[in-house]
């Protein structure tokens, strides 16, 4: 295949040419839509709604006062589940808790992506070695109990996906009523758009066999959220 064929430049001209030949039609102005109810909630109401909605999707939400309590909660989870090895991201929320040091105290192996030199060894770790992924989240959206995670060098995509359990930490400061509030901040400055953003609302799920719903199809079977503040 030539470069021309691979990029489909001539196809592009054909397709756009045909589309542009057609005279423009008048489009009706958009109808008004009343603002979403969540926009009138105060912070505590947003938090309550977030917890309610995510719980409905079988996410488990713990609310704690501060970082110290977050660590205590994390310890309880790790002990309760008998976890031996976890992968943690290095984003701001998690980094501030110094989980590698906590891991040493607790006697569990805490890996970070930096321990893996490259994609392949990182994949080996998240697919086969660790029992849970611990990450921060950038926003918590009240309207549907949704976590928004912005991926970058400190927040790889697979930590919140490949291990069978995902534990996410998010500050109540980061609660927003609707998706748009998070999106405006993330995509408002077109010079600096993140390469990948994920919305997570509950564990991975399916109902593809006989319509029987269950969690943990390809992604985590369990999602726990520690809401700080």
């Amino acid at each position: 295949m030539s470069e021309e064929e691979i990029t489909g430049r001539s196809a592009r001209e054909d397709i756009l040419g045909r589309l542009k030949e057609i005279p423009k039609t008048v489009v009706e102005p958009r109808p008004d839509m009343p603002p979403l109810r969540e926009l009138s909630l105060d912070r505590e109401q947003m938090i309550t709604t977030f917890i309610e909605k995510l719980t409905l999707e079988e996410g488990i939400v713990y609310r704690v006062q501060d970082g110290r309590e977050a660590i205590a909660r994390l310890t309880e989870i790790v002990v309760g589940e008998g976890l031996q090895k976890v992968m943690v991201s290095t984003d701001d929320v998690v980094a501030s808790l110094d989980l590698p040091a906590w891991g040493k105290e607790q006697g569990i192996a805490v890996l970070t992506p930096r321990d893996s030199g490259d994609r392949d060894s990182f994949r080996d770790a998240v697919f086969d070695e660790v029992e849970a992924g611990i990450t921060g989240a950038d926003y918590a959206v009240a309207e549907s109990g949704t976590l928004v995670i912005v991926h970058d060098a400190d927040q790889p995509r697979l930590i919140s996906l490949a291990p069978i359990m995902h534990i996410a930490l998010v500050s109540v400061e980061r609660i927003v009523p609707t998706y748009e509030r998070a999106i405006e901040e993330l995509y408002g400055d077109t010079k600096n758009i993140p390469s990948h953003v994920t919305f997570i609302t509950g564990p991975s799920m399916t109902a593809d066999i006989k319509g029987k719903p269950f969690k943990g199809m390809h992604g985590p079977r369990r999602l726990m959220v520690i809401l700080i503040g």
Partner: peptide, 16 residues
Amino acid sequence: AYVSMDSGPKKPGEID
């Protein structure tokens, strides 16, 4: 359960 949004490929320094 998931909505994922790509704006271009990964940036340098991202491991996956």
